[in-house]
Design a protein around this nucleic acid. Structure first.
Length: 787
DNA sequence: CAGTGAGCGAGCTTCCGCTTGACTT
């Protein structure tokens, strides 16, 4: 007999709590939700006041039967899932599915995993909050309706297997709209003017002062510089102003993802995997949280370590308030479990992420940094414009000793220099004045992490879904994470020195970007379709407004079935109308006429992605097709660029009596000769311009490589070869690969020995993707048969 | 591996939020 059975959501949590509670308590985990709407249909009974049809999914059946068994042996069952909407629903599903009786059931909550908090919770049990459960059911059903009624429209009108949802579709919209802003952006330039003064004859000590406002154009800049010839420069005023910097709040999931991306270059999925490892080994608190709260124990631990390491004046215990919309705060902020551990064991990634979390947490409990900003105003005798020099000194470093939050602003300038001593009235000796042309820059593209930040600001998505959402919209092909090469740009610099103005033109590389999110054509088409037919759901405030209603349900002032009914009926009407009235949408755009053939040139999304087409299907001759290149988009490609695509594949010459052809295929640019392909490296060779001489050179290089690749061939069977691959020698037979046992010498294998290996080992070394795909297929087939 | 892109039209795909493995090289 078990006295007390406690059920929590996470197994790592169960382990920790079991230690706190002692022998009379058995602690188990539900591994999140144990029941959900059935996956293959809407699973909402529309005739029966939206009764949800819940099932225990296949992968949870074993767990549920284990829990059922334990429940039978237990006197009291404590449902200790998280203190939020989802947590309440988990408890309710457990209660229903495990057949619990009210008398034996206690619902308890704690939002920090400390012994005190848990014992306190045990002393204050309650029962399941039905209103909160209903708020979750409303959330669940709304998401199911949106996802499962709109997605099929996309299958019919755009392309199979696409998806739409309350969260993912808005995430795509953000990226699409940002990209259009960038396309529409027109860069303009102005001149930044900086004067450089000698302060003494040693030339060591100089002062840089700038015009506070940039000058609009080169004419006005030259005019200003003219005026500065023979002018005297005098210090008109010097003043200092104290200022302070405060530390950032401890990490939530979202801010951890942002900082790990900026400081360590991790993707959001990477960050979460590493954090999960740290959590499972007990090194950090729970990593999916929207709370910036630290437990009292944590604040105390932080104080101890700060006083010990840095001294009492660096300590400033504090609590932060959450700023994010709809935060549920069921957990603590992400922090080290034991603050005294400044570093940790594990992989280098784990070490680095731990260190980041440690610093952020400790810094949040440290004193403000005290700064002093100094400004000097400099008069110019020949004009009323004034120059300004700024300097900043750190008077007390405070939390900066440990940690400084990074920003997303790439063009931010550091301005932490100290100004040299200056006195009012002092005349300065001019060395030169530089006027540099600067360009305005378009709004930045989103990174994974900055998209998470934006979604959080809008209250869309939850800590547990940020990473999966970003991976979904990439998987569907809506967006792509890519690097962008920069462009060369010329800019003017005017220098006034020794009363002469000199003009130079310099070049810079600008606009290079790393790991940014770009929309694909399919993302643009789907987004435009959804925005035009389901504007209310794609609205950035949709989630916020339904969340308000969920809150009312949780408070008991709104009936959940009423809310869902009010949403569903007009929504479903719109769905039906859209199916009936909308055109099939492949994003077709007419670029104009091809002067050579006189036929129209179209671009659209085809079965295999975006393509250009000359002529129409109804024409007498078949239309000609060509895929768009990477980086080309349906909405921005020009007629000339599209026609260029049809110049490939092109014959560039002959070699050994056979044609050499250049083209661009699924795997990039290539040349082909005698049906043997050679890949071209992007940026090195261009299939549009490559010469026959260069092509022959590449063919010969490839031949040598192939020779080195082949270890053995056999006269008995041309399909059988022994090749040298990335992981050593292997046997290739009829497009399947086979591992050679380590006991055998690959260079001395006989035909019979090879065939023996093929028979006994079976295909093992073929690509991972093909294997997993075929497995997935067989699984779904068997499932389908069972039904 | 380097092509394809109507036509015939089965049966499949899909949501958001809770939680971890189970796979391979």
């Amino acid at each position: 007999m078990i006295e007390n059975l406690v059920i929590v959501e996470s197994p790592a949590k169960a382990q920790t709590i079991e230690k706190f509670l002692g022998k009379d308590f058995t602690v188990k985990s539900s591994y999140g939700h144990i029941r959900d709407l059935e996956k293959n249909t809407l699973s909402i009974d529309l005739e029966n006041n939206f009764k949800p049809l819940y099932i225990v999914p296949e992968d949870k059946k074993k767990l549920v039967s284990e829990l059922k068994k334990l429940v039978k042996e237990s006197k009291i069952v404590w449902l200790a899932s998280d203190e939020d909407r989802e947590g309440e629903a988990i408890s309710w599903h457990l209660y229903e599915e495990l057949g619990l009786k009210k008398e034996q059931t206690r619902r308890i909550v704690f939002n920090e995993i400390t012994k005190d908090a848990i014992l306190k919770a045990i002393k204050n049990p309650r029962f399941i909050d039905e209103n909160l459960v209903n708020a979750q059911q409303a959330r669940r059903l709304l998401d199911r309706m949106v996802g499962y009624e709109i997605s099929p429209i996309l299958w019919r009108k755009v392309r199979p297997s696409l998806s739409a949802g309350r969260v993912q579709s808005v995430a795509v919209r953000l990226i699409v709209e940002r990209e259009r802003e960038i396309t529409a952006f027109k860069s303009s330039s102005s001149y930044r003017v900086a004067a450089n003064f000698h302060l003494d004859d040693l030339k060591k000590n100089n002062l840089i002062a700038e015009l506070p406002n940039k000058i609009e154009n080169s004419e006005l800049t030259l005019k200003f510089l003219e005026k500065c010839k023979n002018a005297t420069f005098k210090v008109a005023d010097v003043f200092t102003k104290p200022s302070k910097k405060s530390p950032a709040a401890p990490f939530t999931t979202s801010t951890l993802q942002q900082e790990a991306s900026r400081k360590l270059g991790y993707s959001v999925a990477q960050t979460m995997t590493i954090a999960q490892k740290l959590y499972e080994s007990g090194k950090i608190t729970y990593m999916r949280t929207d709370s910036v709260n630290l437990s009292e124990t944590a604040v105390g631990m932080a104080k101890d370590i700060i006083v010990k390491e840095f001294g009492a004046k660096y300590s400033n215990p504090r609590q932060f308030k959450t700023k994010s919309k709809g935060a549920q705060e069921a957990h603590e902020a992400i922090r080290p479990t034991y603050m005294a551990n400044m570093e940790t064991e594990g992989s280098s990634q784990e070490k680095r992420l731990y260190e980041l979390i440690w610093k952020r947490t400790v810094a949040s409990q440290m004193s403000d940094a005290a700064l002093e900003k100094t400004t000097a105003i400099i008069d110019i005798s020949t004009t009323k414009e004034k120059l300004e020099a700024n300097g900043e000194v750190i008077k007390f470093d405070g939390f900066l000793k440990v940690y400084l939050e990074s920003t997303d602003d790439e063009n931010e300038e550091e301005n932490t220099k100290l100004l040299p001593p200056l006195s009012v009235g002092q005349v300065l000796k001019l060395r030169n004045i530089n006027a540099t042309e600067r360009f305005t820059y378009h709004p930045p593209r989103y990174t994974e992490a900055s998209l998470v930040k934006k979604l959080e600001e809008l209250g869309i998505g939850r800590p547990s879904t940020y990473a999966p959402t970003i991976s979904t919209i990439q998987q569907r092909g809506y967006i792509i994470k890519e690097d962008k090469l920069g462009n060369e740009r010329k800019f003017n610099v005017f220098i006034l020195q020794d009363n002469k103005i000199e003009e130079t033109v310099k070049t810079e590389i600008t606009g290079a970007e790393k790991s940014k999110l770009f929309p694909n054509d399919i993302g643009l088409v789907v987004n435009d379709f959804l925005v035009s037919y389901f504007q209310n759901i794609l609205d950035y405030n949709f989630t916020a407004s339904v969340e308000k209603q969920f809150d009312e349900i949780a408070e008991g002032t709104l009936k959940w079935t009423d809310m869902i009914g009010k949403f569903y009926h007009p929504f479903h009407t719109k769905v039906t109308e859209t199916i009936a009235n909308s055109e099939r949408n492949v994003g077709e755009r007419n670029l104009g006429i091809d002067t050579q053939s006189g036929k129209t040139v179209l671009v659209k999304i085809g079965r295999f992605g975006p393509m250009a087409q000359i002529g129409e299907a109804s024409d007498e001759d078949k239309p000609r097709f060509a895929s768009l290149l990477k980086g080309q988009r349906i909405d921005t490609i020009s007629l000339e660029e599209a026609l260029e695509l049809f110049k490939l594949p092109r014959i560039i010459g002959q070699f050994e009596g056979k044609d050499v052809t250049a083209g661009i295929g699924r795997f990039g640019p290539y040349i082909v000769h005698n049906s043997k392909f050679v890949s071209l490296k992007a940026g090195v060779d261009d299939p549009f311009t490559i010469s026959i001489d260069r092509a022959v050179e590449l063919i010969n290089i490839k031949r040598i490589d192939d020779q080195n690749k082949t270890i053995l061939t056999f006269s008995q069977d041309a399909d059988l070869t022994v090749l040298n691959g990335r992981w050593g020698a292997y046997i290739s037979y009829k497009k399947e690969n086979y591992k050679i046992p380590k006991t055998q010498d690959a260079t001395k294998l006989s035909y019979e020995a090879c065939m023996e290996i093929i028979k006994t080992t079976g295909s093992k070394s073929s690509g991972r993707k093909t294997i997993s795909k075929s497995k997935v297929k067989t699984i779904s087939k068997t499932k389908a048969k069972k039904k």
